[in-house]
Simulated scan of single mutants.
Amino acid sequence: MFISPMLLATSDTAFSDQQYIFEPKIDGHRLIFSQQNGTIRLYTRHNNDCTRQYPELLLPFDDDIILDGEVACYDPKTGLVDFESIMTRFMAKKSEKIQQLTGTLPVTFVIFDVLHYKGQDLQQLPLMQRKELLAGLTLPSDRFGIIPFIEGAGEALFKQMQDLGLEGMTGKKKDSKYYNRRHSAWKKVINWSYADVFITGYRKAEFGWLVSLPNERGNLRPVGIIEHGASPTHKKAFYGVVAPLKTDEDREFVYVEPRIKARVKMRNWTKAGNLRIPVFTEFIV
């Protein structure tokens, strides 16, 4: 049984508030764990069935239950969450590959909410009551964990997330019910990284700016594409000056001289040295 997950609003800054609890933000993907009549199904936030991808999570609880959390891979060397590894697990489709990755890239289901238990719908209970029920569960294996939280001290937790280079944190009102949509009772604060990049092209159809950075030899190399953050004013300014800088084009892109520089914020760098989800913030003169 799938339940539409409660999604987080965005807070631009970290905050402290005794009406909230604060949790580390896990850099994996959202997972709804559903055990009904002894049958376990796993779903993404978009109601895509991903039961096959994670066989190590197909272990029963003591009764029917629906849980909300994040499925993640941890780097055995650093102990930190590795987003690219969980995407490798999620994209695996063939049974042989899935079995192989279960051994080399095992996942952990980090649980932060319980929505149904023993036939009862818990979504209208205040969050702290649901947390109390969650804390009393017996987990079926060490592939399952419960997210820790602190009360009130959001700014101190966010400082720890910054120091560790982690994705950020969430703040949740203690008395919040579980809404099956985005709601301001739950907020995320992202620990953004920043980079200054050269715009070296643009997409012909939907919006997208190609961006590059110098490599160790001083030559520009592509590092991603900006698809978010630019306002209509920014776009108008860019397209008003870019025409004389055109150098080439193909079916999808127009390529330009690297004269326009921009600052972007991003989740982090990928292992290949690319920007992960870059968001435009401003032009640099």
Rank of each mutant, 00 (worst) to 15 (best):
residue 73 C to K: 01
residue 73 C to E: 02
residue 74 Y to R: 12
residue 74 Y to N: 06
residue 74 Y to V: 13
residue 75 D to G: 02
residue 75 D to F: 04
residue 75 D to V: 02
residue 76 P to K: 03
residue 76 P to T: 08
residue 76 P to D: 03
residue 76 P to V: 12
residue 77 K to H: 09
residue 77 K to V: 07
residue 78 T to E: 09
residue 78 T to L: 03
residue 78 T to V: 04
residue 78 T to M: 08
residue 78 T to I: 03
residue 79 G to M: 07
residue 79 G to K: 13
residue 79 G to E: 07
residue 79 G to D: 08
residue 80 L to A: 13
residue 80 L to Q: 14
residue 81 V to H: 07
residue 81 V to P: 02
residue 81 V to F: 05
residue 81 V to Y: 06
residue 82 D to Y: 09
residue 82 D to N: 11
residue 82 D to S: 11
residue 83 F to S: 07
residue 83 F to A: 07
residue 83 F to M: 13
residue 84 E to C: 04
residue 84 E to N: 08
residue 84 E to L: 03
residue 85 S to T: 15
residue 85 S to E: 15
residue 85 S to A: 15
residue 85 S to I: 11
residue 85 S to C: 14
residue 85 S to K: 15
residue 86 I to D: 01
residue 87 M to G: 08
residue 87 M to V: 14
residue 87 M to K: 15
residue 88 T to S: 14
residue 88 T to A: 15
residue 88 T to L: 15
residue 88 T to P: 04
residue 89 R to Y: 08
residue 89 R to V: 11
residue 89 R to C: 05
residue 90 F to T: 06
residue 90 F to P: 01
residue 90 F to V: 06
residue 90 F to S: 06
residue 91 M to H: 14
residue 91 M to V: 10
residue 91 M to W: 10
residue 91 M to R: 13
residue 91 M to F: 12
residue 91 M to Q: 12
residue 92 A to W: 06
residue 92 A to L: 03
residue 92 A to K: 06
residue 92 A to T: 02
residue 93 K to V: 12
residue 94 K to Q: 10
residue 94 K to M: 08
residue 95 S to N: 10
residue 95 S to I: 12
residue 95 S to H: 08
residue 95 S to L: 12
residue 96 E to R: 15
residue 96 E to N: 14
residue 96 E to W: 13
residue 97 K to P: 13
residue 97 K to T: 12
residue 98 I to R: 03
residue 98 I to M: 03
residue 98 I to P: 03
residue 99 Q to C: 14
residue 99 Q to S: 15
residue 99 Q to W: 11
residue 100 Q to G: 11
residue 101 L to E: 00
residue 101 L to P: 00
residue 101 L to G: 01
residue 101 L to H: 01
residue 102 T to R: 09
residue 102 T to G: 12
residue 103 G to V: 05
residue 103 G to P: 02
residue 104 T to W: 07
residue 104 T to I: 09
residue 105 L to G: 03
residue 105 L to F: 10
residue 105 L to V: 10
residue 106 P to V: 00
residue 106 P to W: 01
residue 107 V to D: 00
residue 108 T to P: 00
residue 108 T to M: 03
residue 108 T to E: 04
residue 109 F to N: 00
residue 109 F to H: 00
residue 109 F to C: 00
residue 109 F to V: 00
